[in-house]
Amino acid sequence: MIGVELRKLVRRPRTWVVIGLLNALPTLVAVLLAVTDLAPRPGTGPAFLSAVLSNGVLFPAAALAIVLPLFLPVSVAIVAGDAVAGEAQAGTLRYLIARPAGRTRLLVAKLVAVLVFVALAVVVVTVTAYFVGTALFGTGSLDGGAVGAVSGVPLSPRQAVWRTVLAMAYVAFSMLGVAAVALFLSTVTDSPLAAAMGALAVLVASSLLLTLEAAGALQPYLPTRYWLAFVDLFRQPILWRDLVRGIGLQAVYVAVLLAATWANFTTKDITS
């Protein structure tokens, strides 16, 4: 069943269009930076971008920071929102259930496919950004290819690679909350668009509340609260505090929403 869902994922042209678009923005940013040589003013623009001009090795991290606030969650919401609602809308859901695929199995397979998509998207963005970054900005002038971290002390290339890998893992994990929201809505509605939009509405609300001092009491529970904590991986030493909280928060969201998704989907009348 999982194999079936993965085949559907990779054979779907949309998957690759989304991943392509996901890469387009960081690449465009890189080209513009390289051509104009205009780094954003300190404190503005996405993380790492001002540092990229002197060393392309940090561009994967900058690319993650570029796609993290909107593009990545949008694409995850689209794919996860489509998971069940898309089948319902196309009418194929009834044939899968009558096949019988087993509702829990189907849900697990859909979930795995979404996870694979998230991982794939993050890996492709990072790898593309690495090649684009090093090609356009070089690997920096430091001895032995060391990379200047956020804290100003150098990271060895080995450390830099490790932290980029950790950042990829963290960003991918951060997307699971979005995926869980979209998957849940996907079992509630028969419209994949509504599911994706619903998940995005949750994110927009969360991002908005994060900017509001008055919502301080709510903020530790907002799904997007710790997203940018992946920047902490590039500090020296790594600041684990928010990363750990981010993982815990996402885990709770995922657990609760998946439980709700499962409860809803296994008792749902398939009338589409």
Binding site: G3, V4, R11, L96, A101, G102
Partner: peptide, 20 residues
């Protein structure tokens, strides 16, 4: 009837058959 529009007949039947 329902099928995945972007796939051919054989791919559709193969996916459905493998799904259970």
């Amino acid at each position: 009837p329902a099928a995945y529009g972007h796939l051919g007949a054989r791919a559709n039947l193969s996916l459905l058959d493998a799904a259970g």
